[in-house]
């Protein structure tokens, strides 16, 4: 079967029910996508499928046939990070880093679709991605920073 991964046409000849995460990691050697739970709870394996965030541990590769898959590897060249990644670096949004690829892909979807930079809305869109290190605050700050890149980055405010 054929699919587009990070802008490149790829073909896969193995079992059609193989999980997308395993095809990405084992067959295409794109190990940026992480497995945290294998049951769609933690979101570490989030990739974009035709622009929508999905848990790649729950998707049989057959479901990606003829579709566009984007992983964390698509967001940065080896020299330059993307806008979200820069913001995560500046605001401390990545700690151990294992949830980071999934977190960034969900945030990338939100950024591209013109999502709101209001803290509650950002927390809502990130609610499917578990992080055990940060307490989320610096992740929320990072996403807001990226969304407001043109204006001045403001941090989550309290009442």
């Amino acid at each position: 079967m054929n699919l587009t991964v990070n802008g490149k046409k790829r073909s896969f000849g193995g079992a059609p029910f193989k999980r997308l995460i395993d095809v990405l990691r084992e067959d295409f050697r794109l190990t940026g996508t992480k497995e945290g739970c294998g049951e769609g709870e933690c979101g570490a394996c989030t990739v974009l499928l035709d622009g929508e965030p999905v848990n790649s541990c729950l998707i049989p590769v057959a479901q990606a046939e003829g579709r566009r898959v984007e992983t964390i590897e698509s967001l940065a060249s080896s020299q330059k990070l993307g806008v979200l990644q820069e913001a995560f670096l500046k605001r401390g949004g990545a700690q151990c880093g294992i949830c980071t690829p999934g977190m960034v892909m969900t945030a990338e979807y939100w950024r591209r679709t013109g999502g709101s930079s209001e803290p509650g809305a950002v927390r809502n869109v990130l609610a499917g991605n578990l992080c055990r290190c940060t307490g989320y605050q610096h992740i929320v700050d990072s996403v807001i920073e990226a969304l407001q890149r043109k204006g001045k980055g403001k941090r989550e405010k309290f009442e």
Binding site: L30, T31, G32, T33, T71, I72, E73, L75, A76, S78, L81, Q85, F88, L89, K90, G92, A94, Q95, C96, G97, T100, P101, V104
Partner: peptide
């Protein structure tokens, strides 16, 4: 900035 941040953020 976190030393190993770019590696973690780019996968």
């Amino acid at each position: 900035r976190r030393t190993e941040g770019p590696e973690k953020l780019s996968g």
